[in-house]
Amino acid sequence: MTGLCDGRVVIVTGAGRGLGRAHALAFAAEGAKVVVNDLGVGLDGTGGGTAPAQQVVDEITASGGEAVAHGGDIATADGAASLIATALDAFGRLDTLVNNAGFLRDRMLVNLDEDDWDAVMRVHLKGHFLPFRHAAAHWRAEAKAGREPVARVVNTSSGAGLLGSVGQGNYAAAKAGIVGLTLVAAAETARYGVQVNAIAPAARTRMTERTFAETMAAPEGTGFDAMAPENVSPLVVWLGSAASAGVTGRVFEAEAGRITVMEGWRPGPTADKGARRTPAEAGETALKLLAASEPPHPVYGTR
């Protein structure tokens, strides 16, 4: 490895398994000291235990790295505050926050309970906001004290948040919200030396290996395992390092060996009458503009 993150202190939430675990190990391999956060919950967010986080810490320390476990609930103010405090107490600084924690409660919208909506919004969206809010407060204080940080935040969105996904209305809405949060966070904290980006990964995790079993299956033999979560981590490590200077407010898709810069919402065809239209005129104009526009990508689950 290149030592890309030598001396940096990195927090990864939801790092006991899957993508989070891969990110934590990859940061450690590049010289970072890692805070491994995980509640140890099931796929639907129930249950819990500290074993998954501690196992990743043990893997890192067995390889000569430095890591500590954090088992707090980062979707609570106290849990998020203690997460940042753990990094500062254990290693004396904080350089990178990777927001990765999440779970699924999939239902078609007409069958989706309010509790399942709230639970997914809480862990994905609030679970991104609160750790960021406490980390950003620390970095702002550092900047105001004349110690401007080289801080990085990597948020985790999803193709479901960018395109939609049938049966995942709560998850898609939360992941779309994370993109909006990323854009605002990047704009608001740039003055404090903070860069904020998001990834939309596709990889084999507990959340995908059942829903997309054929696509996510590991290959037989020794061929390239396109859906291994470790394929996503190199981009996350680079975004979380000082080497990514100048890159902020961007969203990347990462899958197998492919990296894509997502261009998001931007104005397309437009028409200005300079006066109020009737409903019929508005409809006629809308149809003409749609005919001149690029068609949207299909929602996942409809192709």
Score class of each variant (00 low, 15 high):
250 R>P: 05
302 T>N: 13
118 D>T: 14
54 Q>I: 06
282 A>M: 04
161 G>R: 05
45 G>F: 00
266 R>N: 08
92 G>V: 06
198 A>C: 12
217 A>P: 02
115 D>Q: 15
290 L>R: 09
250 R>W: 08
66 E>A: 13
257 G>T: 13
178 I>N: 07
22 A>D: 12
238 W>S: 05
273 K>A: 15
164 G>C: 13
263 E>Y: 10
162 L>M: 14
26 A>D: 04
43 L>N: 09
79 G>D: 05
120 V>F: 03
2 T>W: 09
265 W>V: 11
159 G>V: 02
138 H>T: 03
58 D>R: 06
11 I>N: 06
186 A>W: 07
23 H>M: 09
212 F>N: 09
251 V>Y: 00
237 V>R: 01
278 T>H: 12
22 A>F: 10
118 D>I: 09
16 G>T: 13
50 T>M: 14
88 L>E: 15
296 P>K: 03
293 S>W: 05
85 A>Y: 03
303 R>T: 09
93 R>Q: 13
9 V>T: 14
161 G>Q: 12
282 A>V: 00
4 L>H: 03
37 N>P: 13
78 D>L: 10
213 A>T: 12
118 D>A: 14
216 M>E: 09
21 R>V: 06
260 T>W: 04
163 L>A: 11
174 A>Y: 12
53 A>M: 10
123 V>C: 02
245 A>E: 11
221 G>Q: 11
95 D>N: 13
52 P>D: 14
235 L>M: 07
13 T>H: 01
91 F>M: 01
90 A>F: 10
255 E>T: 06
156 T>N: 15
277 R>C: 07
7 G>S: 04
112 L>G: 02
279 P>K: 04
41 V>F: 07
282 A>E: 11
149 P>Y: 09
106 D>G: 11
286 A>F: 02
129 F>Q: 11
107 R>C: 09
58 D>I: 08
146 G>S: 14
182 T>Q: 12
4 L>V: 03
256 A>T: 03
129 F>N: 12
241 S>V: 10
161 G>T: 10
105 R>I: 05
29 A>I: 06
184 V>A: 15
49 G>V: 03
121 M>Q: 15
107 R>Q: 15
261 V>Y: 08
279 P>M: 00
46 T>W: 01
103 F>S: 01
280 A>H: 00
32 A>N: 05
177 G>K: 00
192 Y>G: 05
161 G>M: 13
170 N>K: 03
6 D>G: 08
245 A>V: 10
170 N>Q: 02
255 E>I: 03
191 R>D: 13
211 T>H: 10
61 T>G: 01
75 A>M: 04
242 A>L: 04
245 A>Q: 09
112 L>W: 10
162 L>K: 12
128 H>W: 10
259 I>Y: 13
248 T>S: 15
146 G>Q: 15
29 A>T: 09
291 A>K: 08
79 G>N: 05
